[in-house]
């Protein structure tokens, strides 16, 4: 039997070229090709993402028709009770601003934010990255933080193309963010758990962590501004070597459902 048939030779060539490209990749020498690809695919991606949003909304609407009557009655009831609550919330709003300042959370009006629409995401469902419809022409740069309303952390701009940019999510396995427990001040490093969520690592044994506590960025290292909410503690444990505490964090937002994000430009 002939070992190197034309088919096998071609398979070997293609796999060898593929492997060679993979190993040359970390040097980022193919970024211009990626840029071209991103520009060519941009109109398709935008149209597909918008139409998929509309389709999803339409299906949710159709599914909800049967419940509309009951919902209406419930909403009327809720409306009257909410009106009463609005009055008390107005008072709490000013109190909240003071507390926000005391807790050193990021005030939403402190940053120059650029709104961007999500037009693509990791098809493997691993919560690794998103693509937005703003790029270098809109002043987006690598390393900028990305949040959603109320200062909830999404990730960081990792690649920028003329009209689009890639966000590496905090849940990406390569991501690490300096974080702190808002209530106790315990410091640690937030890492992505292969798209399954977040883990807060390297928390000293002497520090206190409580289930349900909010975890925010600490601002250490300067990669992310201080005070962006990442999630809440779901479970607390220790590292296998028992040197540090470790906490499982439930992200504050579902990254696969995001439509609009804000890039922190300054």
């Amino acid at each position: 039997m002939k070992l190197f048939t034309p088919r096998r030779t071609k398979l070997l060539i293609i796999v060898a070229i593929g492997a060679l490209l993979v190993f040359l990749n970390p040097k980022k020498i193919f970024n211009p090709i990626r840029g071209l690809g991103a520009v060519a695919a941009y109109p398709f991606e935008k149209v597909f993402y918008i139409s998929s949003e509309k389709t999803r909304d339409m299906f949710s609407f159709l599914a909800s028709i049967g419940n509309l009557k009951n919902d209406n009655a419930r909403l009327l009831e809720e409306n009257s009770s909410l009106q009463a609550k609005v009055a008390s919330l107005e008072e709490q709003k000013s109190e909240n601003a003071v507390l926000r300042q005391q807790l050193k959370l990021a005030p939403s009006d402190k940053y120059n934010l650029a709104a961007a629409m999500v037009i693509g995401q990791d098809p493997a469902g691993s919560g690794s990255w998103l693509i937005i419809d703003k790029g270098a022409t809109s002043g987006i740069q690598t390393g900028m933080s990305v949040i959603v309303s109320d200062g909830i952390l999404v990730g960081k701009i990792s690649e920028v193309y003329p009209t689009s940019a890639k966000i590496t999510l905090v849940t990406d396995s390569g991501s690490s963010v300096n974080a702190t427990d808002l209530k106790t001040g315990a410091l640690g490093i937030l890492r992505g758990a292969y798209g399954l969520g977040l883990v807060m690592d390297m928390v000293e044994q002497s520090d206190t962590l409580n289930v349900g506590d909010s975890i925010v960025t600490s601002g250490l290292g300067g990669l992310f501004p201080k005070g962006f909410l990442a999630g809440r503690i779901q479970q607390i444990g220790t590292t296998p070597d028992k040197l540090f505490q470790q906490a499982v964090i439930v992200p504050a937002v579902r990254y696969s459902q995001l439509e609009v994000v804000f890039v922190v430009k300054k």
Partner: peptide, 13 residues
């Protein structure tokens, strides 16, 4: 290119 994978991964796979 579109999935931001290492270039060559999908080619070989």
């Amino acid at each position: 290119v579109l999935t931001s994978s290492a270039l060559g991964l999908n080619v070989a796979a």
